[in-house]
Simulated assay, not measured.
Amino acid sequence: MRLIPLALIFAPFALAGCSPAEAPASAPATPSAPTAPVAPTAPAAQTNDPTLGTAIATVLGENAASTRIAMKIVGEGEGRIALVYLVGMNWCGTGGCNLVILRPGPTGWEQIGNVGRVSNPVRLLTTSSHGLPDIGVTVSGGGGPPAYEAKLSFDGRAYPRFPSDEPLVGAEGTVVITDADIPPVV
């Protein structure tokens, strides 16, 4: 027995639905060049510091258009940092979203942390490490233990990549970022 490919059996039916090509009503549009991601404007507007907006745009890269951010600048002088909570499919998972931490440097804002698995609220603690404030973040989801707060401490070079598995107990601080700070989807 000889098998006939299905494509040969159904080809006449597929071709019956085709009609001769018609001339387009108007000339086709010229394809435009891809546009570069637009840098977020909210952070720079909040701080009147365009170098912060540039630093955040660098972190976001090609994901700028699909990312919502909640940002807070905390501290003063040498202890000043920007906490930037990133929300979007490239920054969030079942365990939370990313919290980027920046500080002013000689040539603009520099990234000193990109912490994954962070949920809100984010707190600025009254303690500090190596001259920068400790941060309390909520850790939840991802199939882990019930929600708890973990402490992020600067080690002299950077904040840790992931929050500690040790719950933070009894630390004083102030809430600086909540879910209410995240802009709505436009």
Rank of each mutant, 00 (worst) to 15 (best):
L124N: 01
T41W: 07
P43A: 10
Q46F: 14
E172T: 08
L6P: 04
P160N: 04
L132M: 08
T126P: 01
G156P: 05
L15T: 15
G143W: 11
V115G: 08
V59D: 00
R2P: 07
V38Q: 08
L86C: 03
I4H: 13
T30E: 08
G105L: 11
S140I: 05
P106A: 10
E110H: 00
F162Q: 09
E172S: 11
Y148K: 02
V122W: 00
G141C: 06
P43S: 12
A64H: 00
L99F: 04
I69K: 00
G108C: 05
A14E: 15
A7G: 10
A70C: 05
G170V: 01
V118E: 12
I182D: 06
T54Q: 14
G93H: 04
R103Y: 01
T54W: 13
L3F: 10
A65V: 10
V87T: 09
E62W: 00
R80S: 03
D155W: 06
P183E: 13
F10Y: 13
T47W: 14
T178Q: 11
N98T: 08
S140A: 15
A171M: 01
S140Q: 12
T107P: 00
P121E: 10
W109I: 12
N98G: 03
I101M: 04
C97H: 03
S32E: 14
R157F: 09
N48K: 15
G131Q: 01
A147K: 06
V87G: 02
T54Y: 14
E78A: 13
G96F: 05
A70T: 00
V185H: 03
Y159E: 04
P167V: 07
E76C: 07
Y85S: 02
A82Q: 10
G88K: 00
F162T: 03
W91P: 01
P50W: 13
G136F: 07
P40T: 09
G170A: 09
G96T: 02
P145K: 04
A70E: 04
C92I: 04
A14V: 11
G141H: 07
P167S: 08
L86N: 00
P146W: 07
L99E: 03
T126C: 04
D49H: 15
S119F: 00
T126K: 06
A57P: 04
G173Q: 07
T107M: 01
P121S: 08
A21C: 05
P163L: 11
T35P: 05
F154N: 02
I177M: 04
T126V: 13
R123E: 02
Y85M: 02
G108V: 08
